[in-house]
Computed example of a mutant assay.
Amino acid sequence: MATPDFIRDLRNSIGRQLLWLPGVSAVVFDDQGRVLLGKRVDTGGWSVIGGIPEPGEQPAETAVREVYEETAVRVVPEGIVLVETMPPTRYPNGDVCQFMDVTLRCRAVGGTARVNDDESLEVGWFAVDALPELEEYALTRIKRALEAGPTWFQGMGAEPAGGHPEA
């Protein structure tokens, strides 16, 4: 994901030390039950769509904006899938960030999936039984979004040993 200007400004003040940030992930389904994925420029891997909220932006607004910016698909958020604080990540430039991710299930309502910015190499719709290789992060979010259960909150007794929720 591209680094927002407000984060660049913060980095000028705090250097490379840990920066705790909100993040929003969107698991988008179409009317055929397929999931929308983007192949990321930064990692080269497929993932769900996501990004950092702008200051004052609500998570649902972030999901709608990020999905459109990255894929040209219009969505309506339908519910919260999970809320999870991720482990800190050190980036190649030395910056350290820790994200609290709010994942939303979204329904596509318009647009045609295509690369719409410089953050994706490819975008596309995938049947849930024919997904490309995904990191556990994305798989967990897709599996949770397919469940009809309540929102999953990290640390609330529903995770097995090892720290990852069972799907």
Rank of each mutant, 00 (worst) to 15 (best):
L21G: 09
G23I: 00
V24L: 08
S25R: 02
A26E: 04
V28S: 02
L36V: 03
L37I: 12
G38Y: 00
R40Y: 07
R40N: 09
V41Y: 02
V41K: 15
D42M: 10
G44R: 15
G45Q: 14
G45M: 10
I49S: 00
G51L: 10
I52V: 12
E54G: 02
G56H: 02
Q58K: 13
Q58M: 09
T62L: 08
A63Y: 06
E66T: 06
E66L: 06
E70C: 07
T71R: 04
A72I: 08
R74Q: 14
R74N: 10
V75T: 10
V76N: 02
P77K: 03
P77V: 05
G79Y: 00
I80K: 05
V81I: 09
L82S: 12
V83R: 07
E84R: 13
T85C: 03
D95R: 14
C97E: 12
F99Q: 11
M100I: 13
C106I: 04
G111W: 05
T112R: 15
R114Y: 07
N116Q: 11
N116L: 10
D117A: 13
D118R: 15
D118M: 08
E119P: 04
E119L: 06
L121H: 11
G124S: 06
G124F: 06
A127D: 14
V128W: 05
V128G: 05
L131H: 14
L131G: 15
E133D: 13
E133I: 07
L134A: 09
E135D: 14
L139M: 15
T140H: 09
K143I: 02
R144N: 07
A145G: 10
E147H: 02
A148L: 15
A148K: 14
